[in-house]
Design a protein around this nucleic acid. Sequence first.
DNA 1: ACCCAGGGTCGTC
DNA 2: GACGACCCTGGG
Length: 296
Amino acid sequence: MRAYVEGNDIILKVKDDFILKHIFECGQCFRWNPIDEVTYEGIAMGHYLQLKEEVNQIRFLDTTLKQFNDLWLLYFDLNTDYSDLKERVSALHPVLGEAVDFGSGIRILKQDPWETLISFIISANNNIPRIKMLIRKLAEAFGDQFINNKGEVCYTFPSPVQLTFATEEKLREMGMGYRAKYIYEVAQKVSHEYDSYNHLTNLNTVELEKALLKYMGVGPKVASCVMLFGYGKMDTFPVDTWIRKVLIEWFAIESTRPTEVREAIKRRFSGLEGIAQQYLFYYAREHKLEIGQGIK
DNA sequence: ACCCAGGGTCGTC
DNA sequence: GACGACCCTGGG
């Protein structure tokens, strides 16, 4: 992908493999929001960013080349060839062909593992608007304050140490519900065992899952999301309520046994599990009525 | 008013 | 392994 400076902005030339709505509405992130028809804003990697969709290009507003190279190149997974990826995913199954066409601009963001861990603990048995609100409140209460290029007050996602200042009671008051205990426990554990926490980046998918499952509030689904969106593990497949419907409806996988589901997924999507899941999730969620009606 | 689902996990049996 | 409980919010 080609990028260059234009005034205060960076221009990224794209085809159909970088579509803001697809990237930010496919359920992988919670701190990006639309401003208008063609613009999204968000806070990630400790920075505020505004992105504008133009003809065959994406405008990174008020961004230096250094910021682009240091932060956004990796965050937006710009070194991965998604046209090749999409071709291979489409070939796996007719439904995936449709799902890929529908979400053709999806990219798997490489998000901060810590933020991803806490965010998906919050996501459990919760809905997306509320998840977004709770994460925003967490940032406002414990993150670093800064002023963006529009003069607005913004907050970074709190570090593990910053989150240790949150008591369980305080987190409950903020509306975290029963997840307050999980957030509290995980913040304490991570900040007191920081070396072993950092070591997680060196683990393979199997080892990483095992390690993540030890954290309070992290089950198979949350661990899988953290691995996929935070650690870039493409060979993992989060199974949630939507995907369960998809598996039953389109892939005739009805087993409730995690190991059986896992084997079936691996057989069908081997190596492309993560990205395949995102296309299916986005496709399913945007077509919720059709799917719901299909299940007897 | 009441029930149910929402990107599930925990504790208990 | 299966089952109910669980903070809270919005929609039927």
